[in-house]
Simulated scan of single mutants.
Amino acid sequence: MSITSFVQHLSKEKNYSAHTVNAYQKDIGSFADFCKHEFGIDGLEQVQYPIIRNWIVKLVDEGLTNRSVNRKIASLKAYYRFLQKTGILVASPLAKHKALKTNKKIEIPFSEGEMQNMFSQIPFENDLEGTRDRLMIELLYTTGIRRAELVNLQLTDIDTEQQIIKVFGKRSKERIIPLLKSTVIFLNEYLARRNALEVIHDSNALFLTKAGHKIYENLVYRIINKYLSLVSPKLKKSPHVLRHTFATHLLNNGADLNSVKELLGHSSLASTQVYTHNSITELKKVHLSAHPRNKKQ
């Protein structure tokens, strides 16, 4: 019963997305199955840390990365915090747990040249899918929105006259992002194709398949990977790397960190500072080439 209450808490009180809630539920359910099959324990309220440690060992033996294990433990920590908050538990069995060490994950953004080649050299088809794919890439690169935010865009979220887009981010937090003129042009071209579809099943959704259904996240990933493979040799080619590229290119060209934070929908500067790595690299180049002290050496 407590797991059901926790899921409702995440969905209704925390306002987490369905995808996030499902991930928490899956992690906790997996641990509950482990406790029942390995130790005969039905209620997670009875669990002590040694059992959790056994689960961690099992996950590692199964080949999960430390990062994935840490994510599962984070779900479990949130669950036990909920049990403490509701008075079911006094102390969490994970109170003294330390996360497994992980290698720092550095994503390499696409260069400005690669993105220019995307729009100048790729022959997008002049049909629904071609105009849709080009617009999706344009939006991800020029607004920095997340893949889930792109998928959930509604027609009413777009204002071509004001050249703005309304996005609902994590925890349904709303933000307004300006659109470039090029984006509006691509948007109008796509809308003409979209509105000409004979059958539309999801009438409010901005992005549709040729069958008239709302697009889904895996489709977006495949599309982005397909086109970026034509202009870049980088291993990671995903919607999130385009978001990283958006932030990096803005910072490289003098944008204020706080402004980029607002555009990305981050709750704190700490999240945005992840994207400053490449900007610092660019600043170093400028510093070395322009500082008079360096020129004398």
Rank of each mutant, 00 (worst) to 15 (best):
M1S: 13
M1G: 06
M1V: 09
F6Q: 00
V7K: 07
S11I: 08
K12M: 10
K14E: 10
N15S: 08
S17K: 06
S17V: 09
A18E: 15
V21W: 10
V21A: 09
A23D: 13
Y24G: 04
S30Y: 13
S30A: 12
D33F: 14
D33H: 12
K36T: 15
F39R: 06
G40A: 13
L44K: 06
E45N: 11
Q46C: 02
Q48F: 10
P50A: 08
I51D: 07
V57D: 11
V57Q: 02
V60R: 05
D61A: 12
L64K: 03
T65H: 04
S68A: 12
S68E: 04
V69Q: 03
N70P: 03
K72F: 09
I88R: 06
P93F: 02
A95R: 00
K96F: 08
K96Q: 02
K96V: 07
K96Y: 04
K96H: 07
A99T: 13
A99C: 01
K101G: 07
K105V: 15
I106E: 04
E107S: 12
I108Q: 07
F110I: 09
E112D: 14
Q116K: 05
S120E: 15
Q121S: 10
I122N: 03
E125C: 12
L128D: 03
G130H: 06
D133R: 05
D133I: 03
I137T: 02
E138Y: 00
E138I: 00
I145A: 02
R146I: 03
R147D: 09
L150C: 08
L150I: 02
N152C: 01
N152F: 00
T156E: 11
T156N: 12
D157W: 01
T160M: 01
E161D: 14
E161H: 11
Q162N: 14
Q162H: 13
Q163N: 14
G169C: 10
K170P: 15
E174Q: 09
I177Y: 10
I177F: 08
P178M: 03
P178C: 02
K181N: 14
K181C: 11
I185D: 10
N188M: 04
N188R: 10
E189N: 11
A192D: 12
R194Y: 05
N195G: 13
L197Y: 02
A205L: 05
L206H: 04
F207A: 09
T209K: 00
K210A: 12
K210I: 14
A211E: 11
K214E: 10
Y216L: 07
Y216R: 02
E217N: 10
N218V: 11
V220E: 14
K226G: 08
Y227R: 01
Y227E: 09
L228N: 08
L230Q: 13
L230T: 13
V231K: 04
V231N: 15
L235E: 15
K236E: 15
K237P: 06
K237V: 07
K237W: 00
H240F: 12
L242M: 07
R243E: 11
T248P: 05
N253C: 00
G254N: 01
L257D: 01
L257M: 03
N258A: 14
N258T: 14
S259L: 13
L264E: 12
H266I: 02
T272I: 03
T276N: 00
S279R: 06
T281R: 14
E282H: 12
H287G: 08
L288G: 15
A290Q: 15
A290I: 04
K295I: 09
K295A: 10
